[in-house]
Amino acid sequence: MEIVCLGLSHKTAPIEVREKFAIGDSHLGEISAVLARMAGLREAVIVSTCNRVEYYVAAEDGSEALRQVEAFAAERAQMPMGDSFFRLRGDSGIRHLFRVASGLDSMVIGETEILGQVKKAYLSAQTGGATSRCLNKMFQRAFNVAKEVRTQTGITRGAVSVGSVAVELAEKIFGKLEHCNVMILGAGETAEMTARSLQSRGAKAIFVSNRTYERAATLAETLGGKAIHFDEWDVEFGEIDILIGSTGAPHAVVPKAKLAPLMSRRTDRPLFCIDLAVPRDFEATVNDLDGVYLYDIDSLQGIAEEGIRVRQSELTRCEAMIERHVGEFAKWLVTPVPSRE
């Protein structure tokens, strides 16, 4: 039995091509089953996400299987295959699946969402009756490899964007963000994205304060928060855990002299200050105050870059782990199926 993989991804095809070949979640099982029933093919699993469409097939004849899958995919998309597709056979196909499941082939190296998507695709195919001995074993192995890579290396460690760095830091200060209130000073785009990241992790309430009240109101409405007049932001300060600065002010709008008396009223409640503005909105010395943690845009970007660097430095270790599993699986694949008699 041979494993083949035909696919395209963000590395090989632009979105205009990927969207033509994409398959909705609800159809994955059914289409995998159709493919598996085609002459010469034994088993099939289709992984389709916004970044990739990949057909994994087990067949007796790899060349014939690739030809059939190509024809099938082209017919479904009603467009020629072109150069966007990669064709992998044997160990290369197995290795590719293990790399994909481990997040090594993702746009953001080490991201973990892809593992869930691969699991979902496999379950759909399995439910549709499109998998059997080979692909069941290969996908189970892929999930184990992904788990091993994630837990034994630093490939998922560290945040790699300003928003995710902000979330990671907030979680290291407050734990769960469900009881955290966020306030945005200004109405910058990065501030909005950061606030959304915090919201996606459970941040409770968002307050927006801007010199132009209408802009604050618009952003507050978008985020489902509350707009506050700029000269009244300190009135709500007692309830705030995360303060994001993104005004266009030419001077610091949060000097230490202003923050110190406000902090003395809340000795037990830390404050996470995210300064996304240039010129900066917070005086650098506010970080010296007890319970205040200040990060400016340079710090956040530096941490994100460090996260990327750490992940890249872990690649060699991950590849070595994957190679070991590829060897073991390939060995298993050529082992004769034990007779039931």
């Binding site: 460690r157 560290g158 830091l169 979680e171 290291k172 200060i173 407050f174 734990g175 830390p270 970080n287 943690y293 990060y295 710090s299 530096g302 941490i303 460090e306």
Partner: peptide, 19 residues
């Protein structure tokens, strides 16, 4: 580590300060 912006291995493994 939070104050000094040093996000090393200890930072990632240590629990949040609130906990």
């Amino acid at each position: 580590l939070l104050k000094k912006h040093r996000l090393n291995s200890f930072f990632h493994i240590l629990p949040p300060i609130a906990e």
